[in-house]
């Protein structure tokens, strides 16, 4: 760091000298009544002053490499949400709460890689990122990621589950924001934006385009969830029982499908 600071001071010294020189030149030109020269010299002075300001700015810090691998980050986001979630939502949550920088394209092959890893050495990892299963065919639901340690019913997607899961994740996000504010921190603006966007599609959760209030979102989402919960839980429980009986340990995590049957 030593030479850098030295270099900075040398630069600053030269700039200050130049500024002092310019000022006296301006005074001289003003006394001589040469207005055109005064104007051009003042412009020059302003430029030099700006350069002096810039020289004071600290060097930008080099971009940090992410500390966690992608699958850990996805697991973090999924644990916050607690329901099978689409890649886009995972990326948004990761960005809003964990300042992560994963992209959706990094998630496309994740499920396949996890399946491969599970097939070669089952249960070697503490958790796997796996599929959610459709309630009727027990096939992998399109585009959704889940965690293998969750109870099977919560990984089942019935007809009402997309809505129920949406309401649950809105609740979980609101709760997390309340936890953060309760601990004396505040959630990031993007976290509030995400909550507001979700709240706009829940009846009674937000007024107009205002920022959503977490407590109000939890109440409104809970009210709608109460309507769907019973039939959704029944459907999920029934499908989970079927999955327990019919599927082996691989397909229980990654789904049984016409395609799997053909390639397996």
């Amino acid at each position: 760091m030593g030479p850098l600071i030295l270099c900075g001071t040398v630069e600053l010294d030269a700039l200050e000298k130049r500024i002092a020189g310019l000022r006296s030149e301006i005074r001289a030109a003003k006394a001589a009544g040469d207005h055109a020269t005064v104007r051009s010299l003042r412009a020059e002075l302003r430029k030099t002053e700006r350069a002096w300001d810039d020289a004071l700015e600290p060097e930008p810090e080099p971009a940090k490499a992410p500390l966690l691998p992608v699958r850990e980050q996805v697991h973090q986001a999924l644990t916050l949400l607690g329901v099978p979630t689409a890649a886009k939502m995972i990326v948004t949550v990761n960005e809003a709460f964990f300042a992560g920088h994963i992209t959706t394209s990094q998630l496309t092959s994740l499920r396949r890689d996890e399946e491969k890893s599970f097939r070669t050495s089952p249960y070697a990892r503490p958790y796997y990122l796996c599929a959610a299963l459709t309630s009727e065919l027990l096939s992998p639901a399109r585009g959704l990621l889940a965690v293998s340690t969750w109870p099977l019913p919560s990984r089942i997607i019935g007809p009402l589950s997309p809505r129920a899961d949406f309401l649950t994740s809105a609740t979980r996000i609101a709760e997390h924001i309340m936890r953060l504010t309760g601990a004396g921190e505040d959630a990031s603006p993007s976290a509030y934006r995400l909550l507001t966007r979700m709240a706009q599609n829940i009846p009674g959760a937000v007024d107009g385009f205002d920022q959503a209030d977490p407590a109000q979102v939890i109440a409104a989402a809970g009210a709608e969830l109460a309507v769907h919960e019973e039939s959704d839980t029944d459907e999920r429980g029934e499908a989970a029982r079927r999955a327990e009986q019919q599927l082996n340990e691989v397909t229980r995590l990654f789904g049984a499908g016409l395609k799997t049957a053909r390639t397996a």
Binding site: L137, P159, L160, P162, R163, G255, G257
Partner: peptide, 29 residues
């Protein structure tokens, strides 16, 4: 989610009607 909100507003869809079935593939096929 957006669509349900719109349908509830314009067509008075009841809250309980929220079921959604994706037929873009059937069991991966």
């Amino acid at each position: 989610a957006h669509l349900l909100r719109l349908l509830r507003d314009t067509l008075d869809l009841s809250i309980s009607e929220a079921s959604y079935s994706d037929i873009s593939d059937v069991g991966g096929s």
